[in-house]
């Protein structure tokens, strides 16, 4: 039982985070002194040109990579490595091809020692949530790209994380599937009490899904910018406010 007050659940604080890679023997800074506060239950989108370090930032948050300096705090506690309060949805569904849909969704529960029976029934609930109940016993090979990604989403949600980390989760889908998945994510997040951090290169997706958008600059000495998207959900892509936000973002990227 956590002693932290309930309002702190899923709060992420990033302090002075830096990371560089080595390229041809020379250090290549990817993240330079990033500071950020993600509120409990908020959905934050991280956008930026390629090379801006957005995926690196997410991987550090996930505990898959280590930062060179700085720290990540979750609900006030510094974290290192992976943790059960976080779940990651990757660009590829990353399903285990030898497991059925239901077994894949139960995977994260199995590895965390949830009893087989409990894991099955919880997995079944999340398979239903993403609308794949008639595919419970199908193998990943038999699914379309969109369906496979839904299974990946269900698997992440099934472990009931405080924080959901998404690395361009819809990036590999076709335009139509993408839009319907964005609508579905909005519906799912409305019902799940979870903080979401979404890395995307799709500005419209960021405006559609996020409460705030963090723009990572490619130049490491420039300050990252934050934009608040205060629109009611489900959002209307053609509303004047939506379009205004998109123009603002395009201008920031020098594209408008």
């Amino acid at each position: 039982m956590s002693l932290a007050p309930a309002t702190l659940r899923g709060e992420v604080t990033i302090r002075h985070l830096s990371k560089s890679f080595t390229l041809d023997g020379r250090p290549l800074p990817v993240l330079a002194d990033v500071n950020l506060q993600v509120r409990s239950g908020e959905s934050l989108a991280i956008v930026g040109a390629s090379g801006s370090g957005k995926t690196t930032l997410l991987r550090i948050l996930a505990g898959l990579d280590d930062a060179d300096s700085g720290e990540v705090l979750i609900d006030g506690r510094a974290v290192k490595g992976v943790g059960s309060e976080r779940a990651v949805i990757f660009q590829e569904p990353r399903l285990l091809p030898w497991l059925t849909v239901l077994e894949n969704v139960a995977f994260g529960l199995d590895t965390r020692g949830v009893s087989r029976q409990e894991a099955r029934s919880r997995a079944r609930r999340y398979v239903q949530l993403v609308g794949l109940q008639s595919f419970e016993n199908a193998y990943p090979r038999q699914l379309s790209g969109g369906m496979a990604q839904r299974v990946g989403i269900a698997r992440a949600l099934a472990v009931q994380p405080e924080i959901l980390l998404l690395d361009e989760p819809l990036g590999a889908l076709d335009a139509m599937t993408k839009i319907s998945m964005q609508q579905e994510l909005t519906r799912i997040w409305r019902d799940e009490d979870v903080t979401t951090i979404l890395v995307t290169h799709d500005l419209e997706e960021a405006i559609y899904l996020a409460d705030r958008i963090l723009i990572l600059p490619r130049e490491k000495n420039a300050e990252p910018r934050l934009i608040e998207i205060d629109l009611p959900r489900p959002r209307d892509r053609s509303s004047p406010e939506f379009v205004r936000h998109r123009e603002e973002l395009l201008r920031l990227f020098g594209l408008h």
Partner: peptide
């Protein structure tokens, strides 16, 4: 390795990764 990484994010240790990812994938 992407599957191994996925398993890692769900808290799978070396043994679990071996048993549930590496072994079936090698069959």
């Amino acid at each position: 390795t992407k599957l191994v990484e996925m398993a890692r994010t769900y808290g799978a240790g070396r043994l679990t990764i071996f048993r549930r990812v590496v072994l079936p994938a090698s069959v």
